[in-house]
Amino acid sequence: MGTTGGKKRLRNLNALVAVLVAVIAVLLGSMLINRGGESSTEAAESSAEQPRNSPLDSPARREPDDPMAMGRTDAPVVLVAYEDFRCPFCAKYATEVAPELKKRYVETGVLRIEWRDFPVFGPQSDRAAKAGRAAARQGAFWRFHDVVYSHAPRRGKPELPPAKLIDYAEQAGISDIERFKADMQDPAVDRAIRRDVAEGTRIGVSATPTFLVNGEPIMGAQPLSTFVSTIEQARQEAR
């Protein structure tokens, strides 16, 4: 009987230990769950406090007499383009995307496009920017723009010596070439270019082409679909 009683007591003790272990496990699990829930809540609150990415403030000027802009001054969407006449990706945008944007959005009053000079490829880029400004003074900026980019090579950057810029001005229909050459040397033209560069640098432009659609950036020569989706989104938000 002693042996039987000892076995019985041992079974009872084992059962008690098992119960205690189960209770402790439940209590520990509950504590961990509660702590985990608190951590998740704190993380969610911390995440909610983080600022969301948002578009930049649009640098659109909407100047009614701007010869380097196209489209209505009160258009709901403004695309500001930082470009260099020697930039091959700017040429790709200008010849493949811009004409479609003009037809779809500029001519229907939805979009305004504003050019900004951002010469990044040395003295020839600076000279071409001055030529564009000189063409603008005779109301021929966009014609000059189209001629320059239509002659861009398939690869690499074009050479734009003074003689070639004068030839492009003539192709753009600029009749007063002497005035064109004089305007290229006007210090006011250089100051206007520097103003564009300073504006772009201030908002973080570092390469061409860079576009801002109502402040929403588009980097590089993206496909037409990227511009369309961004313009449509900006159009909806402007309503």
Rank of each mutant, 00 (worst) to 15 (best):
V77P: 04
D126E: 14
E170M: 14
Q138G: 10
R155L: 12
D74E: 15
A131R: 06
A94D: 05
P59H: 08
A152T: 13
R179P: 00
A134L: 00
G173R: 03
S58T: 15
R155I: 02
M70C: 00
G139N: 06
A69F: 04
M184W: 07
R133E: 10
Y93Q: 08
L101K: 09
P119M: 06
A163D: 13
L101N: 14
V110E: 07
A163R: 09
V77W: 05
D183H: 02
R154H: 11
D65G: 03
P158C: 07
V78P: 02
F118K: 07
F89L: 13
A128D: 02
F180W: 04
E96Y: 10
V80Y: 12
L79K: 00
A60Q: 07
A60W: 00
A134W: 05
P119R: 04
H145K: 06
A69Y: 03
I113R: 00
Y82L: 06
I177Y: 09
P153F: 08
D167L: 04
D186W: 07
R155Q: 14
Y82S: 12
F180H: 08
A131N: 09
R86L: 14
N53E: 06
A75C: 10
V97G: 05
Q138M: 02
R179A: 15
C87L: 12
P99R: 06
D66L: 07
H151K: 10
I174R: 04
V80P: 08
R154V: 09
P123V: 02
D84I: 10
M68L: 11
A172C: 05
R127G: 02
L160S: 03
F121L: 14
R104I: 00
M68T: 14
A163C: 01
T95G: 10
E63C: 04
P55H: 13
L160F: 04
F89Q: 04
K103E: 14
F141C: 09
Y149R: 08
N53R: 05
L160N: 08
P119F: 04
E107Q: 12
V106K: 04
P158Y: 03
V110F: 03
E170R: 15
P64H: 05
I174N: 09
D167Q: 15
E83Q: 13
A75H: 05
D74Y: 13
I166L: 13
D65W: 03
D66W: 09
K92S: 13
V80Q: 08
R61Q: 13
D74K: 13
K92H: 05
A129D: 02
